[in-house]
Simulated scan of single mutants.
Amino acid sequence: MKIKIPATSANLGPGFDSCGIALNRYLEITVKEATTAWVIEHTLGADIATDQENLLIQTALQLMPELPPHRIVMQSTIPLARGLGSSSSVIVAGIELANQLGKLQLSAQEKLNLATAIEGHPDNVAPAILGQLAIASYEEDSDEVNVVNASFPECGIVAYIPKHELLTKTSRSVLPETFSYKEAVKASAVANVMLAALLTQDIALAAKMMAKDRFHESFRSQIIPELTELKEVARENGAYGAFLSGAGPTVLFLTPTDKQQRLMDSLHAYGKDRVTVEALSIDRQGIQVID
């Protein structure tokens, strides 16, 4: 059995901690024979555990402590600590591992509830489970998660992925602890228009609103100083716009498809050997289980 989970990009500018899209980079885990202890085979680095201390198994055992151990092969094309949902994909995979091995028959909503409670917010786990565009809210006092899953407008997507890591904890440390009522009203109005534009397939207006985010990007630009310049590169190359992917440092660009290669060439020239520039597309399936 193989479990396949897509990469994700959260926030989309003003949709902070609420919105995300699924992308065509994947975590794949292949479940092999039963063993006496959990064995995780991977080439993802020495920091990633190869036994039951791995986040994948820790998550699965939260659901079913008695889950029988297996040998598992883990592969991933999702870069670690780059704002593309690498840890969220493992959490979602762990839930699906328990679901399959334990024959739990969890619904998509139940998977989302569990993943959000573990992750703390639904912006990455929702699109990882459902695919496409996911807009979700989480009420911690009741553990209630509400979600809208919708089609993302057709466009070119380019990822500008720096070769250095940026931990979410570090990126969140620059955010303010409080927000004035007046500023919150302005920020939510921008988010509302952005989401309405996405749901009506108006990618140009959506990207315009993404650029007006007030919730996090201006604060995070303190530790990602090239964000402002990259948005200028987007404008110069006819892209719809750009936004910080999750906590960063990856920046995603939305562009007309006929201008995608020109944009990629400019981003290569700007980033040189400090970055990887990749063309991506929307994953429209979410979790896949392949027998």
Score class of each variant (00 low, 15 high):
Ala128Gln: 12
Asp291Pro: 12
Leu166Ile: 00
Ile203Asn: 04
Arg82Val: 00
Phe253Thr: 00
Lys182Ala: 14
Glu28Asn: 10
His70Gln: 11
Ala37Thr: 04
Cys19Asn: 04
Asp141Ser: 15
Ala197Tyr: 09
Leu63Cys: 13
Val147Gln: 03
Ser218Arg: 10
Tyr240Val: 02
Ser218Trp: 05
Glu41Lys: 12
Pro162Gly: 00
Asp17Pro: 06
Thr228Asn: 10
Ala269Asp: 10
Met264Ile: 10
Ala189Thr: 04
Asp51Pro: 06
Glu119Thr: 09
Asp213Phe: 03
Val148Leu: 15
Asp213Asn: 08
Arg214Phe: 02
Tyr181Phe: 15
Ser76Leu: 05
Arg214Cys: 09
Leu114Pro: 08
Glu140His: 11
Met209Ser: 08
Leu205His: 07
Ile203Met: 14
Leu230Glu: 01
Ile29Tyr: 03
Gly286Asp: 00
Arg274Tyr: 02
Ile157Ser: 07
Lys169Leu: 11
Gly286Leu: 07
Gly238Gln: 00
His42Cys: 05
Gly20Asp: 06
Ile157Asp: 01
Leu199Met: 14
Asn113Lys: 13
Ser245Trp: 01
Glu53Pro: 01
Ile78Phe: 03
Val73Thr: 15
Asp47Leu: 01
Leu84Ala: 04
Lys231His: 05
His121Ser: 14
Lys259Leu: 14
His268Val: 00
Asp51Cys: 08
Asn149Trp: 14
Ala37Gln: 13
Gln222Cys: 04
Thr35Ser: 15
Leu12His: 03
Gln75Cys: 13
Ala93Val: 10
Asn54Gln: 11
Leu44Glu: 05
Pro256Gln: 03
Ala159Leu: 13
Gln201Ala: 13
Val174Phe: 15
Glu229Arg: 01
Asp51Val: 07
Leu252Cys: 02
Ile5Val: 11
Ala204Lys: 12
Pro127Phe: 08
Gly20Asn: 09
Leu114Arg: 14
Pro79Asp: 04
His164Cys: 04
Thr200Ile: 10
Ala60Ser: 15
Ser142Tyr: 13
Ser221Arg: 11
Ile72Met: 06
Ser107Gly: 07
His268Phe: 08
Leu67Asp: 09
Lys2Met: 07
Val277Cys: 06
Glu66Ser: 12
Val174Ser: 11
Arg71Ala: 14
